[in-house]
C-alpha cells in the first residue's frame, strides 16, 4: 500500500506536484493517468525517495522507502529505462543491483528469462533499443520479487507483444495480492489494465475512483442522430446546455439531451429521424473531459502567427 499525504514538490517557481494525497491499495492495478508534465514522474520519484518532497510525506507499507530494511523486496520500480551505465552489460547491471540485497545470481537469470532478455543480456546496455531498455528496467524492478511495483510508462517503446506481456504481468501480480502502481498518458492502455484510476493534471489530483466510475461519471453523453432535415433539427434542438455538431451530411452529434428527448422534439416537429444512437462514453472521453483544463502543453494544429504556438502557461521544466 502506498499512502501520500499533502505531497508537494516545488522546483524553483514551478510547482510540479501540488498537495497530492492518495492511497494505492494492494491487490489491484492502480493507474496513474495524466498529460505530459502533470507530475506523474515527480510523484513516483518522491515515493522512491529520489526526490525529497518540499512538503508532505509518502510511505510504502507504512514506512518511507529508505527506511525499509530490504527496499528491493519491498518496492520494485521502473522510473526511467535509462538508469543504467551504458558500458555495462544487462547481466552485470542486474548482478550489481542484486548484490546489495544478497539476491542470488539464480534470481538474476530468472528475471532475464522472464523479460526475454537472454539473447542480449551479455551486451552493453547502451546499445539497447527503447524496448530492450524498458525490459531491462522491468527486470530490475522484478529483481527483489517486491510486494509493490511502481512502473512509470512501462509500455513505452514496447512492441504489441511486449505491451500484452506487461498487461498480463501486472494483472497477474495484482492477483497475487501485490500493489501495482502504473503511470501512463495512454488512456486506452489504462482502460484495459487498471482497476482503479488516479488522474493528475498540473500537479493536482482531479479524479481518484474505480475505472468504471470514471467512465460513468462523464456527464457529456453524446447521441448520434441521422435525419433528413439536419439543419432544421439542429436549430430546434439548440438551447441552453445543448451542443449540436453537424458532421457528415444528415448527421448530428447531440450532447446535453438524451435520445428520448431528441425523439420527442423530432416527433413534435414532424422531422424524419432514421437513426438515434446513444454513444457509449469511453475512458478516453472521460479523460479529455477531466483534463481539458489541466493540460500543460496544448497542441495547436492550425496554422497562425508564431505567437499562437506558445503554451498558455509558463513552460514547465519538471516532469521529465
Amino acid at each position: 500500500m502506498i499512502e501520500a499525504t499533502g505531497l508537494t514538490k516545488v522546483y524553483g517557481s514551478k510547482t510540479a506536484v501540488d498537495g497530492v494525497s492518495f492511497t494505492v491499495k494492494a491487490g489491484q492495478v492502480t493507474g496513474f493517468l495524466g498529460p505530459n508534465g502533470a507530475g506523474k514522474s515527480t510523484t513516483m520519484r518522491m515515493i522512491m525517495g529520489l526526490d525529497r518532497p518540499t512538503w508532505g510525506t509518502v510511505t510504502v507499507n507504512g514506512l518511507h522507502y529508505a527506511d525499509h530494511k530490504a527496499p528491493l523486496h519491498e518496492v520494485g520500480a521502473l522510473l526511467d529505462a535509462k538508469a543504467v551505465h551504458t558500458s555495462r552489460s544487462a547481466y552485470n547491471h542486474l548482478r550489481a543491483m542484486a548484490a546489495t540485497h544478497n539476491i542470488p545470481t539464480s534470481r538474476v537469470h530468472e528475471v532475464i528469462e522472464m523479460t526475454g532478455l537472454e539473447a542480449v543480456a551479455r551486451k552493453k546496455a547502451g546499445g539497447f533499443s527503447l524496448g530492450m531498455g524498458q525490459r531491462l528496467g522491468i527486470a530490475a524492478a522484478l529483481l527483489g520479487d517486491p510486494q509493490t511495483l511502481i512502473l512509470d510508462e512501462p509500455v513505452n517503446g514496447l512492441d504489441p507483444e511486449g505491451v500484452l506481456w506487461v498487461r498480463n504481468l501486472v494483472r497477474y501480480l495484482a492477483g497475487q495480492g501485490k500493489t501495482v502502481f502504473l503511470s501512463s498518458h495512454l488512456m486506452s492502455e489504462m482502460a484495459q489494465t487498471a482497476d482503479h484510476l488516479i488522474v493528475i493534471g498540473r500537479g493536482r489530483i482531479i479524479a481518484d475512483a474505480p475505472v468504471q466510475d470514471i467512465i460513468a461519471g462523464t456527464r457529456q453523453v453524446k447521441t448520434l442522430v441521422r435525419t433528413s432535415a439536419a439543419t432544421q433539427l439542429s436549430a430546434l434542438l439548440s438551447g441552453d446546455g445543448v451542443t449540436v455538431d453537424q458532421g457528415q451530411p444528415e448527421t448530428l452529434e447531440v450532447t446535453g439531451l438524451d435520445a428520448r428527448q431528441i425523439a420527442q422534439v423530432a416527433l413534435d416537429n414532424r422531422v424524419l429521424v432514421y437513426e438515434l444512437t446513444p454513444q457509449q462514453s469511453s475512458l478516453e472521453d472521460a479523460y479529455f473531459d477531466l483534463t481539458k483544463d489541466e493540460v500543460e502543453y496544448h497542441s495547436h494544429l492550425t496554422g497562425g502567427p508564431a505567437g499562437e504556438f506558445a503554451p498558455e502557461t509558463a513552460p514547465a521544466t519538471a516532469g521529465k
Binding site: 530490504a70 551505465h85 552485470n92 528469462e113
Partner: peptide, 28 residues
C-alpha cells in the same frame, strides 16, 4: 514463467547489508 516469482526464496530475503553494497560496487 512468472509463477517463479511467487517463490519468495528465489529472490532471497536478507535485505541490504554493507558487505552486499561493497560487493555491488566491486561488480560495478
Amino acid at each position: 514463467d512468472t509463477q517463479t516469482s511467487r517463490v519468495r526464496s528465489t529472490a532471497g530475503t536478507k535485505g541490504v547489508t554493507f558487505a552486499g553494497v561493497l560487493r555491488s560496487e566491486w561488480i560495478k
